[in-house]
Simulated assay, not measured.
Amino acid sequence: MYVAVKGGEAAILATHDLVAEARRGDAAVPELAVAQIREQMGLACARVMNEGSLYDPDLAALALKQAQGDAIEAAFLMRAYRTTLPRFGSTEPVDTAKMAIRRRVSATYKDLPGGQVLGPTYDYTHRLFDFALMDDEPQRDPSSAPTGHLLPQGEKDRAPLDAFMPRVPDILGAEGLMEAEVPPEGDPRPFDLTREPIAFPADRDVRLQAMARGDEGFMLGLGYSVQRGFGNTHPFVGEIRVGEVSVEFVPEELGFAVDLGEITLTECQMVNQFAGSKEVPPQFTRGYGLSFGHSERKAMSMSLVDRALKSREFGEATEYPAQQDEFVLYHSDNVEAAGFVEHLKLPHYVDFQGELELIRRIRREREQRLARENEPLPEAAE
């Protein structure tokens, strides 16, 4: 470490006080409470939970406060804490078909069974500053808020949602137009990349895990790349749904599932065309994304890259970065990437001195060689 810095360990410890001072900011401004961050910065908390691989809105809010809003540092805090937690087992697979819908849209069917539910979204805002937010907001009655459910003209906004909301890929699958997804033979326990090293080529369960906790910006860039320049994909959003699902766990001593509670999830299923092959008829294929909290951009990006990574399975050429599982999985982890980049700030005195001496020696040799080349030739003897 920086032992040569004036003050040594005391100087390093003093940086902790400076961080706390910078984090607090102007003492005249009221301090943010963790509950305020959790309730009013829910999208940021969702990102931290995803990239930190831990669903806990309170801890995500605390991590954001402690990290001054730095999402990567907050995710690092979440992962570090996660390693201290005991593991009791694996929960049952969540059933997103039974999700308590908060938002649900599809770009493939206008008259979707169950209807389109706009819910809370920035999609229809004007991206203009609301300067009223700089003042204290008036209290609103939550019961007066509309649902955003698309209804026939004249009906009230707060009509109850349909209990039956089939997923779009399931509708296409009923016609045999969507690729079937079945568990691997024997339905083995999914790979756990937090406990085992990744090997390539990676199976889909590994890929989905890595992307679920991958950096949102990196995943967004890869998803963008498959639609232009480095890909030829232009899929349809089969469905995006946001809502709450039950998490169940089967204790060994009981032998039956116990409901642990509900978590908020965002699910995206992209619909892609596939021309078929000798073995497979023309059909639609899917890209899948599932993320904690309300995080549509992450789920959409993940589903785009998921389909790109399935190219080998369909006999397609793998020519682009988003189709290379080694490139995607190794570089999508922002905590690991940040550590590798930021380690350059640590002392490299010996390494640099070695390179410095090398450059000096090369320059001396070059100057000597040029000097010899520029020496006048001796006069010829008469």
Rank of each mutant, 00 (worst) to 15 (best):
L254H: 06
S53N: 13
M211A: 00
D203T: 14
I37M: 05
E216W: 04
R241S: 06
L77H: 08
D95P: 00
Q139I: 08
K345I: 07
M41Y: 01
E365N: 14
Y81P: 02
Y81V: 11
D135Y: 07
P142C: 07
A71T: 11
G229Y: 10
E355F: 07
Y124G: 01
Q353L: 12
M49A: 00
A20P: 01
Y55F: 07
E216F: 04
A308T: 00
D17I: 12
Q68K: 13
L161N: 07
R158E: 09
P142F: 08
G261R: 04
V242L: 06
M165L: 11
D135W: 02
A44C: 10
R47K: 13
R195C: 10
K156M: 07
Y320R: 09
P93E: 10
A10L: 14
T121N: 04
V258L: 11
R307E: 09
E253F: 05
R241E: 02
L346W: 01
F314W: 08
Q153V: 13
L77A: 12
E367R: 13
V305W: 05
E253A: 13
T83V: 14
G7H: 12
R312N: 12
V250S: 05
D17K: 15
P251F: 09
T125W: 07
Y109R: 14
A132C: 05
K310I: 03
V94Q: 03
L356I: 05
A71H: 01
R286H: 06
G69D: 08
Y349L: 15
A202H: 02
R38F: 02
R158T: 11
V94W: 08
A174L: 10
Y288S: 08
R158M: 10
Q269N: 10
A132Q: 10
V168A: 06
Q353D: 04
Y122W: 09
E39N: 14
Y122I: 11
M1K: 13
M134W: 07
R23H: 09
A35E: 15
S53D: 02
N374E: 14
F236G: 06
R360V: 15
Y330D: 07
M211W: 04
P281Q: 08
F274V: 04
A63D: 03
I362C: 07
A199D: 12
G52K: 02
Q227Y: 00
D187T: 09
R47C: 00
E379P: 15
